[in-house]
Design a protein around this nucleic acid. Sequence first.
DNA 1: GTATGGTTTTGATATGAATCAATTTGGACG
DNA 2: CGTCCAAATTGATTCATATCAAAACCATAC
Lengths: 258, 258
Amino acid sequence: MAQPIPLRHAQDLLKASCHQCSLSNLCLPLAVGEGDLARLEDIVYQGRVYNRGDHIFEQSDRARSCFAVKSGAVRTSIVNENGDEQVTGFFLPGELVGLESLSGGDYACTARALERTSLCEFPVDKLEQLSGALPDLQHHMFHLMGQEIQTGHQMAMLLSRNTAEQRIAALLLSLSSRFQRRRLSPTRLTLPMPRSDIASFLGLAVETVSRVFTRFQKQGLIHAQGRQVELLDLPALQAVYRDNGEDAPRCQQHHSQG
Amino acid sequence: MAQPIPLRHAQDLLKASCHQCSLSNLCLPLAVGEGDLARLEDIVYQGRVYNRGDHIFEQSDRARSCFAVKSGAVRTSIVNENGDEQVTGFFLPGELVGLESLSGGDYACTARALERTSLCEFPVDKLEQLSGALPDLQHHMFHLMGQEIQTGHQMAMLLSRNTAEQRIAALLLSLSSRFQRRRLSPTRLTLPMPRSDIASFLGLAVETVSRVFTRFQKQGLIHAQGRQVELLDLPALQAVYRDNGEDAPRCQQHHSQG
DNA sequence: GTATGGTTTTGATATGAATCAATTTGGACG
DNA sequence: CGTCCAAATTGATTCATATCAAAACCATAC
């Protein structure tokens, strides 16, 4: 049942046409010049569509590819030796999942679709080969991986130094700006993940996440209806993230009560 | 005073001789064939020696190089917008510091020597160039960066799911195996960092670190005398890391109450 | 329309680690 | 050899969040 790489039918093995992709300015194609784009298209497969819960790759399977999200959303998670799982990332359209697979060996995490999702698949060996030939692509891969390392450090900071409120504010703000990057509303979001995934990702209990959502709502920072979230006061959320309980607000912005 | 990149005297700008370096089997040279080693040596500078506390590079400075530790130890840290600092990593001989600098732009963290330390310096532009020419080197760079991303995820897991005891056990075990890689004793370590750095790295208060050390000592897991630490019972430490408070020990190992 | 199972919310309580406060240790240096 | 300052330890108390328990909500299926 669980295939390392999903079985594909012939008609699914479509060469992707980055030229026509609306995400090309967010995704790998942005790294290569018009002239070399064809060579990137040569190695990419437009994969099948995944339904909610479908696994894209599984921890410990041989790492063959990394994936770009075309539509939908992906979450990655790792399971430690004790068997408990932690969500390690959420990936939205235009973002690359499984960059660690470039380390060779096996996938260090499991990737699943959070909703109906379509992906482009980049076989690591070909991607590596092409990177050797296209300095711009190599540069961009280094860039992306470096970013991912930095994100990890930010995450460590968030997890070890920040309160539940700050962590959730940070996540909402991150999602907001990533939505904006795609020219979607930065204030009206539909969260692709359940509260439990948010909790796992932020190192909190589900109950805490729920409580913070209601607290934010009561404070007028957000309006949340299940997965529909409206960010009513971005500056205030930023303030929460920055100096949650701190007495002295650094800037002139302070959020309204009620 | 604070130089982005330390000033060097002419005699310090020595071409490194990876051929003769005892760490070549742990460091970048291991990636390139005997024939290409000279090309790597061409781009590496054997930097000056750093004293305890010397900064190697500073957050927000232009990222020009990454560094391999030859001897001594390095710690990296980031400072967030609130101004509080978090230690993000410790680097021992044979390990590469500042891989994120390959993302281009500025350093995302500050690196300082924890003790008298000597480093080799790899200018990122040249390293990138050479990676394009030497597939094995490129492969290795991807490998290292992928590893670093994975380490980040492990860290996130540790910080959000594990108790103080588990975090400290994990750190001691990590140091132990990294010492062993260098053919040093895996049980008698001299910690290169103060308790406060351990605390910051693991997201704990110094007091907690101190308490756990004494607790471990009382339980006969370690013998600690300041920075001198002897790991008396590695399997027990592993057990602590795995299933700290859990009722049912998974394996046959249970530690003695000493 | 009503049953069903998972998700989310809410409440009460317990607890691990932070914080505050003080003491001890140990190395650097005159 | 004693002084000094930073690092480390120990103790008492507080607090944020986990945990336990239950209710409410919501989508889907029947």
